[in-house]
Design a binder for these strands. Sequence first.
DNA 1: AATGCGGGATGACAAATGTCATCGGGGGCT
DNA 2: AGCCCCCGATGACATTTGTCATCCCGCATT
Lengths: 203, 203
Amino acid sequence: MSIRLVIADDQALVRGALAALLGLEPDIEVVAELGDGTGVAAAVVEHSADVAMLDVEMPGLDGISAAAAVRRAAPSCRVLMVTTFGRPGYLKRAMQAGAAGFVVKDTPARQLAEAVRRVHQGLRVVDPVLAAESLTAGDSPLTEREVEVLKAASDGGTVADIAKSAMLSEGTVRNYLSAAMAKTGGRTRAEAVRIAEDNGWLL
Amino acid sequence: MSIRLVIADDQALVRGALAALLGLEPDIEVVAELGDGTGVAAAVVEHSADVAMLDVEMPGLDGISAAAAVRRAAPSCRVLMVTTFGRPGYLKRAMQAGAAGFVVKDTPARQLAEAVRRVHQGLRVVDPVLAAESLTAGDSPLTEREVEVLKAASDGGTVADIAKSAMLSEGTVRNYLSAAMAKTGGRTRAEAVRIAEDNGWLL
DNA sequence: AATGCGGGATGACAAATGTCATCGGGGGCT
DNA sequence: AGCCCCCGATGACATTTGTCATCCCGCATT
């Protein structure tokens, strides 16, 4: 009996290619393909899937939240996260959301089917390098508002813009930015944004 | 006789999956897979490939430069660019570099094989939406140095950092940044960087 | 009850940033 | 020769940013 697999990735070409790749395996059957995270849990239930392969970066509902939704809706379905960026914070949060595996998109293609099988068997699959980084990295030191302000700052607006979009006083915004810079070690607002992004603290 | 295809993409998983997808087609044969742009031209020659499918964003030699190298080394080989981002500037420069086709990664997977065939027949393949954007967008208004400074600014360093990395005076750096902001319409350094990136003016 | 932490804000101050005028050198176009 | 644009730089100036001290509120921990 073959493994029933749901695939979600926002890039249609990649999604289809992954489906083709895994469809070649005799013991894997791709039962659904989704372009965003919103419908994943429903699709898993509808097709009684065994494994859901989810991209982290997706419009609408992101992969981590989708993973949590899948766990709630169908606890027997394993979740394998696939992502472009090996951000330590992503791995940690994916695991907390109940994911069983986490692979980055530059692992060799041959290993993917094996990862799906392992996850299906109840094993955990984690890139060892990434796991090590994740341990040394530590949790996000940023508070909710600091993250919010950093995200608002990430498209390059002025303090006034950020204040408007976050409904805060300009002075407060500068305080949060200052705190975020101190915690990230960035010497500039932009650097703080980059560091926070690299660590997967923004999502 | 089948179409001999070379694939270059920095993400191994995507690369392998694309190879699997296209390998299913009876008239296409994947003869080489590369992880960066440096070896593409050589591989095309060695395997006497008919079509090269190249990602734009790659470490080492980028896809556009690789396309130009392929054109020089093997003029009979058609180049099909595949990219994550539909930046107008990418399309324009890819065409100038001699690419025959340009598709973004969220086109449906079924259309990819068809794109390869069209390109092989000597036809051009271009996303119509993107083509329209590319026409209205106009060329980059930025000068070489402005681009250089913007790139140096894109990781969030201070003026002093940029000046050091570009071997320029701090005042000069501020002048270039100011000019770049005026030309892009950005009100901040960071905003100028974002706008330039979105238009494909940085590469 | 005291302490600590996060959210929200103000005011003041130093440093960085963005703007502008100006200078000189070089190359290309008419 | 004159004009325009790019490169590189300097100095002055207004604005923005980043930093810090300080305040109040609410909530959870001790």
